[in-house]
């Protein structure tokens, strides 16, 4: 069977953005400027994720976790290599991404569903389920700018789950929910997994990683430092963090 996500040899480089804004004027005068520095965001990353797997991506700030998630989520294109995704994907990459502050919660649900490529009729079918799961019925007709971070997360998570994806990408947003709602999210994620869904999520909470994911990928300096059972990868990541040693590559298999 073909994998849910096949990441094969991807690399991502960024041009270092300098303080000066890019302009036609500066392009004309480009001969006076040094060439921009190239930063390596990711280098030769290979990950194969099967259907029904839950994978936690861990690593230090700036290691390339979010870049990797954005490449899977098709927000960025890799500079080299290829990513194949088989199945309908929903992404929750940031709080309130795809929400407009002036529109109400309800209007934003329709907008967010449209951003995910759903038709209005499909969104209408889901709206009750979304409002129900988010527990925001009392606030759903208030503008989203009045929502707290937790409420935004509830709404975003509810939309992402209710559009019935086969693959779910989450970037450390669950942390802002209260304990009770987090509990609800995790049980929903578990049900999603049991139903054959695939999850990739970035997190800094090792307990959450162990709770949800059977497999963890540790990204360090844009490379895969370790890939294997969560408990083992988390243990070596934590011991590495304590030692403050960088760049050591551990293979846990």
């Amino acid at each position: 069977m073909e994998p849910a996500i096949d990441i094969s040899g991807i690399g991502k480089t960024f041009k270092l953005v300098t303080g000066q804004p890019a302009s036609i004027k500066s392009a004309v005068l480009a001969f006076r400027r040094p060439k921009p520095r190239i930063l390596t965001g990711l280098a030769n990353v290979n990950i194969r994720i099967e259907h029904g797997e839950a994978v936690a991506i861990i690593g230090r700030n700036g290691s390339g976790k979010s870049t990797l998630l954005r490449i899977i989520g098709r927000v960025y294109r890799p500079s080299s290599g290829s990513v194949t995704v088989n199945g309908r994907m929903a992404t929750l990459l940031d709080l309130g991404a795809g929400f407009h502050p002036e529109l109400t919660g309800r209007e934003n649900v329709f907008f967010n569903a449209a951003v995910m490529g759903l038709s209005r009729a499909q969104a209408k079918e889901k709206i009750d389920g979304i409002i129900g799961f988010s527990e925001l019925a009392d606030y759903i007709d208030a503008p989203v700018r009045t929502y707290s971070a937790g409420m935004l997360m509830r709404l975003g998570f509810a939309v992402a789950m209710e559009v019935d994806p086969q693959i779910l990408l989450i970037d450390e947003v669950l942390a802002v929910g209260d304990a009770e709602f987090q509990e609800k999210c995790y049980s929903r994620i578990k049900a999603f997994k049991d139903g054959g869904g695939t999850i990739v999520f970035v997190t800094h909470e090792m307990e959450a990683a162990k709770l949800v994911a059977g497999r963890a990928v540790w990204i360090s300096g844009g490379r895969v430092a370790a890939d294997g059972p969560t408990t083992e990868v988390v243990a070596s990541y934590l011991s590495n963090a304590h030692e403050h040693v960088d760049g050591s590559v551990t293979n846990v298999q």
Binding site: G73, R74, V75, T91, L93, D94, A97, G98, V115, G117
Partner: peptide, 9 residues
């Protein structure tokens, strides 16, 4: 800008 940075479409 925000939408573009975070979501595919």
């Amino acid at each position: 800008r925000d939408l573009l940075r975070k979501v595919y479409f």
